[in-house]
């Protein structure tokens, strides 16, 4: 009896000879002669993405850092990707999977423009909305998780829906989707979401919120995230989507930091209280 579960049910080489991978279909064999293996963990990663809906649009932000484990590896990676003037997608998680999705979205955009043509007000109505994009991405993510080959990301999709109302929703590597007036992925779900919910507790509050207040709340959250999230940095991208289009800034610096609180922290490292 062999106690390794991997061996259970497998033909023994000393009886049957070693497995001949020639008989595996191409999709399963590749060159190695072993079964296909899939991503088991993310490698280069981006941290939180946060977003808030306000009365006539959405504000979204993510910093420009791509980490390699605990190493701050790339410091100029833009994790907010605009899509056709109506939507922005914010990516957390694996950066190479983000780049794959970005290529996917670009080809989708080309396809859309090819079939809907013209650049006029009438055609703008037929453009894919943020809601359409979110539905599409959720299907992509769910399909990949069902194939046991996940895209290791948490996405926020924001912008306008067909009727022009602000839209904000999330998808993750499992294909789980949800929508709320404020959303945050990763560490942001713990650190930024409570702050954002204090500003925008419900849908009604978001309908009363103006752009300046929304931007201020998001900037404040980016600062808190930089204070506490060890995988974050002080340069970030921020985008505002409203009916005039996407206003994306990719080189913002955190303002008005105060590390005074750091002195109060006790109980870590070599300190003696």
């Amino acid at each position: 009896m062999n106690h390794f579960p991997e061996a259970w049910g497998r033909p023994r080489d000393d009886i049957y000879g070693s497995y001949n991978p020639q008989f595996l279909p191409n999709s399963h064999a590749q060159q190695s002669g072993h079964p296909t293996t899939h991503t088991q963990s993310p490698i280069v990663t981006g941290t939180s993405v946060i977003a808030v809906k306000y009365k006539d649009g959405v504000v979204i932000a993510a910093d420009n850092l791509a980490s390699y484990g605990s190493l701050a590896r790339f410091t100029d990676v833009h994790r907010l990707k605009p899509f056709n003037k109506k939507a922005v997608v914010g990516f957390g998680g694996d950066v190479s999977d983000m780049q794959y999705l970005d290529r996917l979205l670009n080809s989708l955009d080309v396809k859309e423009n090819y079939s809907h043509g013209h650049d006029d007000a009438e055609s703008d109505k037929a453009l894919m909305s943020a809601k359409n994009l979110h539905t599409y991405l959720s299907k992509v993510m769910y399909k990949r998780r069902s194939d046991f080959n996940p895209l290791w990301n948490a996405l926020l999709v924001c912008g306008l829906s067909e009727d022009g109302t602000p839209f904000l929703a999330s998808v993750d590597l499992l294909g789980t989707t949800f929508s709320a007036p404020t959303l945050a992925t990763g560490f942001g779900a713990h650190l930024a979401q409570p702050i954002l919910r204090r500003v925008v507790p419900d849908e009604a509050a978001s309908k009363a919120l103006d752009k300046e207040a929304a931007v201020a709340a998001v900037k404040e959250c980016m600062k808190v995230l930089f204070y506490r999230d060890a995988r974050s940095m002080n340069e970030y991208s921020i985008a505002v989507v409203d009916k005039s289009g996407v206003d994306l800034k990719q080189k913002e610096k955190l303002e008005g930091q105060s590390w005074a609180f750091a002195e109060q922290i006790k109980g870590y490292g070599t300190q003696t209280v």
């Binding site: 061996a7 080489d13 000393d14 963990s41 499992l174 789980t176």
Partner: peptide, 28 residues
């Protein structure tokens, strides 16, 4: 001296301990 099994090489190919496995479910 123990018998080997098909794909056994694949099992030990990575050598190092793996950090994550992908679990396709969650509870909402």
């Amino acid at each position: 001296e123990a018998p080997t099994y098909s794909f056994a090489a694949a099992q030990s190919a990575s050598g190092q301990p793996r950090q994550h496995g992908f679990y396709p479910y969650t509870d909402n």
